[in-house]
């Protein structure tokens, strides 16, 4: 919404800006954060419409004769008993599979991992943190001491241990990353609840006879959202990075799934012949992580002006 439009809107309706408009006005000022948002939207669209660009069967089917086809070359492929000419935009990997197609389908896997693990960690972690902060006492010390212990194990190491124990699979990868992402949310939520819980509006809600659950869900949580949203954004970046790292070590998504870490793990053996197999999946990881980091920085500045420097 541009300024004139906005002024006329105020003039006509006399309404004040909504919280979202105010937030968006501040967020928009940070050009890098807007760029980050655009990149993430692009990746999400890629993930949703992956099948429109390339069918999954096609990008998992070997075309050995075209192995390591260079970017921007075309070659004959056999697909569903048809021989056609295929244009490899980003070249082909060691099995002659289209790298662009695999990156696009890989976006789907990475986005699912990023969102689902952080959604899980955010819900569980925030609930635990809110309970710890609101009730205090023994409940708090049990929750916080367990969190301290979880934090004492480095993230990837813990995920590694979970995957090592349960075996490498998609579900176990989600579980491992989800669990290791919880503690950050617990701590953040508890700290925010502690600052909010003694304010007068909470007392007012209590005096009106609201039950604990209602107070936490309706009055406390909404006031603690800003740091949680920032943490969630940065958490998605971290989660995608962990997933690709574990897959790179052969402990995450298993081949032939087109996961970015997996693709890099294959590319490792062919660094000297086919650097393009190495370059593009890594760039995909880097841009998406960069984008989430930019959004995280932008959100932090826009949601909490006090933190802005």
């Amino acid at each position: 919404m541009d300024n004139n439009n906005f002024i006329s809107q105020i003039a006509s309706t006399g309404k004040r800006k909504t919280a979202f408009e105010e937030f968006w006005r501040r967020y928009r000022k940070n050009k890098l954060a807007v760029a980050g948002l655009l990149i993430v939207v692009l990746y999400i669209l890629m993930a949703i419409f992956a099948d429109v660009f390339f069918s999954y069967d096609f990008i998992t089917q070997n075309q050995i004769s075209n192995a390591f086809a260079e970017p921007f070359t075309s070659a004959e492929i056999e697909y569903k008993d048809n021989f056609t000419n295929h244009f490899y935009v980003l070249g082909a990997d060691n099995f002659g599979r289209d790298i662009l197609g695999r990156i696009i389908h890989g976006a789907r896997i990475s986005m699912i991992i990023g969102f689902s693990t952080i959604a899980f960690a955010c819900v569980v972690g925030s609930a635990l943190g809110a309970i710890a902060g609101y009730y205090g006492g023994r409940v708090e010390s049990i929750i916080m001491r367990s969190t301290d212990i979880l934090l004492a194990i480095p993230n990837i190491l813990f995920a590694l241990a979970i995957v090592a124990a349960l075996g490498p699979s998609f579900q176990n990868l989600l579980l491992a990353i989800g669990i290791t992402s919880i503690p950050a949310f617990v701590r953040l939520m508890r700290a925010s609840v502690l600052t909010v819980k003694n304010q007068e509006f909470i007392e007012a809600a209590k005096a009106l006879g609201a039950r604990d659950f209602r107070i936490i869900a309706r009055h406390i949580m909404p006031n603690c959202m800003a740091p949680i949203i920032v943490q969630a954004t940065l958490g998605i970046a971290q989660s995608i990075l962990s997933a690709t790292s574990l897959s790179f070590l052969g402990l995450g998504i298993q081949p032939p799934s087109p996961e970015w870490g997996n693709m890099l793990s294959d590319a490792r053996s062919y660094i000297s012949y086919a650097p393009h197999t190495l370059l593009f999946p890594g760039l995909a990881i880097m841009t998406v992580i960069l984008a989430y980091n930019l959004i995280g920085d932008g959100l932090r500045d826009a949601l909490d002006p006090k933190l802005k420097r």
């Binding site: 690709t244 890099l264 990881i285 841009t287 980091n293």
Partner: peptide
């Protein structure tokens, strides 16, 4: 520093190998 923060270490390692070793 933003780039360094976003680069997966294993990928950077392989890129360095490609440039400086290969």
């Amino acid at each position: 520093s933003l780039l360094g923060l976003s680069m997966p270490a294993f990928w950077l390692g392989m890129i360095l190998i490609w440039i400086f070793s290969v």
